[in-house]
Design a protein around this nucleic acid. Structure first.
Lengths: 164, 164
DNA sequence: TGGAAACAGTTGAAGCTTAAACCATATTTC
DNA sequence: GAAATATGGTTTAAGCTTCAACTGTTTCCA
């Protein structure tokens, strides 16, 4: 068997079926995200990421989360989250509070205004998601998609070579 | 039946199964894209969008495309494409040429250097796509996903109200 | 023919994201 | 228990994206 160098020669290219699937996946995804983002933006003045942040906070105990955990939960870098929270703070939807237990840390806390905006945004958003995604799929397809995405979610490799 | 105003009240929220699916979809997608982008970026110095542009050009007759068509094909705004092409031009991977038939227009043309970079990048990229996506799915799942994404791809609504 | 409107594309400024450096506090480790 | 290292988070600058305005065709249509 050939050594697995990084820029290896003999590449297993995608066959026709795989290629078609990959293209559909990329374009469908990008269109959906774009539409949902624009919809939220124009209707509620927040983007998809901001919405995600508000959702995460609203579901956390005390409607608050530590920056790090929040960053992981919405999958953005620490830095980006920090900027994002600064903006949300400026809009009055979130506020920061220093953490007593670990004095390096900060809480991001959903404000009352933030909750109101979130509630309002969520209504329109879920309607959009329905008409753009769920209404076009059968129950069976939803189930299939859930299974597929669950296996694709983790970012680790499927198995380490020679697991100790 | 209630009038379908924009911010309608009685919202059909997602049930548990739908919600789980939606979350998996969002996070899986975002992780995959992030990894592939970073991989291309560090290994070949181009991002996923730039890669997409080079691919599109390489497959077009004469390895050239009009700006507008290219923008549609990789799903970015005219403006963003223009900036992007400017950068790719600076890197020497693409060049512009005025269009004779329609003098408003420009061709974006893949250069020899661009083709070299694309070839090199493609090898690593397809390997990553395989190990991150296809290797984790069964043939059957790939087929299912293709069907699902094909129905989700178009951005028009499923049907107009009272189609005339 | 002569606009009016649409289209292809660019541009510049403002806003957002990323990357790297940085500060302060916790945690290890010897 | 002191130094080394790791962690939580912010900050600054550079790079990228978006938005709106703009130029120069082309098309429409009366």
């Amino acid at each position: 068997m050939a050594p697995m160098a990084a820029g290896d020669e003999d590449v297993r290219w995608l066959d026709a079926e795989e290629q078609a699937m990959w293209r559909h996946l990329l374009t469908a995804e990008s269109r959906i995200e774009e539409e949902l983002d624009r919809d939220l933006q124009t209707r509620n003045g927040i983007g998809l990421v901001e919405f995600g942040i508000l959702v995460a906070l609203s579901e956390a105990p005390g409607m608050r989360m530590r920056m790090r955990m929040l960053a992981d939960s919405v999958i953005v870098s620490k830095s980006r989250l920090s900027h994002q929270i600064t903006r949300l703070e400026r809009s009055g939807y979130v506020r920061r509070e220093p953490c007593e237990e670990d004095r390096r840390g900060f809480w991001a806390i959903l404000t009352d205004d933030g909750l109101v905006v979130l509630r309002e945004a969520a209504k329109g958003h879920v309607a959009r998601v329905r008409e753009r995604v769920f209404d076009r799929l059968t129950r069976e397809q939803v189930r299939q998609l859930a299974g597929i995405m669950r296996t694709l979610e983790p970012d680790e490799a499927p198995a380490g070579p020679a697991g100790h």
